[in-house]
Nucleic acid binder design. Structure first.
Lengths: 242, 242
DNA sequence: ACCTGAACACCGTTCAAGT
DNA sequence: ACCTGAACACCGTTCAAGT
């Protein structure tokens, strides 16, 4: 597994990964609430304070755990039986990836709730969203529609796109973006950047306007309403076709 | 506000409501994590242990808080400007109710996360789901489709239908249902019961089979995929129509 | 560079006692 | 019937010290 992080020296990264790995295993066994710094330290045969050399605090520990298992999704996807034709429609790609994500997170029953509690966007999470977004854009969807589609699926599927493009709920306002960092982000997350910035290129809209929470909520709601009504009109049934 | 509960004597209920009301206000001010039993007791000018006469423990406190604010949805709905024609299609009814729920929960920023953490189904929550289900059934949707529709919207909109019909994740298996309680439940929650039990009346299916998590997940996923693809084909745009 | 031990300021909850 | 005080078994995290 390759998790790219702000790297210091290799010894530290090795130790940090072991801490996170053990934390994930322990949470699998006893749940996330029962996973305390002290309990984890005991598991590692070390004094509680030793953990703080590898992890700033409990919040960062949880972030790291989420990062670790979200990173596993890629492996789950790769290990599938059917290799999937080189080029398929976006629907098939999204379906495969979403079901792989679900299978991965289901192996860690605590992960759903913890993911929803996180506000930090770690690299593995951004990587996942990047892959997801790129599938939609490659399918020909506009950045506009992709943007709304991400918001609409976010809550139910992983919970972590929820606040992705929207900083308005953060207690501390985001610092003005450093141009160098923006460039680095654009290189690594081209699809996310395309989706997040399309409004700036739209001459008809105010530059830099953020998300409209209400509009996105109603988009998702109407998507659901229209879909259900159409199934209703088609006399949909869950019974297997005979 | 009317919150029906397993009632003991009126004095206790009065006190309990005051504890819950204060807890909600305090959580609004400092967040749910910072809301500790001790902090709440201080706010009420009372020693921490005094709370335990009105609430079994912190979990029950949170349940009560959720119950209180979910109960507010009905009032929010009633206080709307447009009185809404007596008979409309189910879509309009569901839309109004869902947006009223959203407005209510938005006034309590901590509520979304807390609701998702709860596993208990309190009365106000069941009442809300009952209203919601009855709108769909009255609209002519089959219990089968209603069932799947509830699962599909659950996560995103309120988070609390998630495990409604599915006990498989509970640590303790549900006790065999008491016939008298079932009858009482059927009286108060006819739509929920209709949705939850329709399989038993379907001759083609195994009686009593529970939910199929995987099938419901894929139902919601495909609902989303199909909806997005249809918008894509229609060249959907978020820009206001000119 | 990494780990330790003792301490601080908290938790939720119990128990036995008060009125 | 309701509230209290002291105590228990925990937390996350600090600080100063060890190697």
């Amino acid at each position: 597994m390759l998790v790219a992080q702000t790297l210091n020296e290799p010894r530290v990264r090795l130790r940090r990964e072991r801490v996170l790995r053990e934390a994930v295993d322990l949470a699998d066994a006893i749940g996330a609430d029962a996973l305390t710094m002290r309990r984890l330290a005991e598991q590692l045969g070390v004094v509680p304070m030793a953990l703080y050399k590898h992890v700033a605090n409990r919040e960062e520990l949880l972030d790291g755990m989420v990062d670790l298992i979200v990173g596993e999704i890629e492996g789950e996807l790769a290990s599938e039986q059917e290799p999937a034709a080189a080029s398929t429609d976006w629907q098939t790609g999204v379906r495969r990836r979403t079901l792989a994500a679900r299978r991965t997170l289901q192996r860690h029953p605590w992960s759903r709730r913890v993911i929803e509690g996180r506000t930090t966007k770690t690299t593995a999470v951004l990587d996942y969203i990047e892959q997801f977004s790129s599938l939609l854009l490659a399918g020909g969807l506009s950045p506009d529609l992709t943007h709304h589609a991400l918001h609409a699926i976010g809550g139910r599927m992983w919970g972590f796109t929820q606040e992705l493009f929207d900083e308005s709920h953060d207690a501390v306002p985001a610092p003005p973006p450093d141009p160098a960092m923006l460039q680095a982000a654009a290189a690594r997350y081209p699809s996310i950047v395309a989706v997040a910035t399309f409004r700036a290129h739209d001459p008809g809209s105010v530059v830099g306007r953020g998300c409209d929470d209400d509009a996105e909520f109603e988009f998702a709601l109407d998507l659901w309403i229209d879909g259900i009504e159409r199934l209703h009109r088609r006399h949909w049934s869950s019974a297997p076709e005979v």
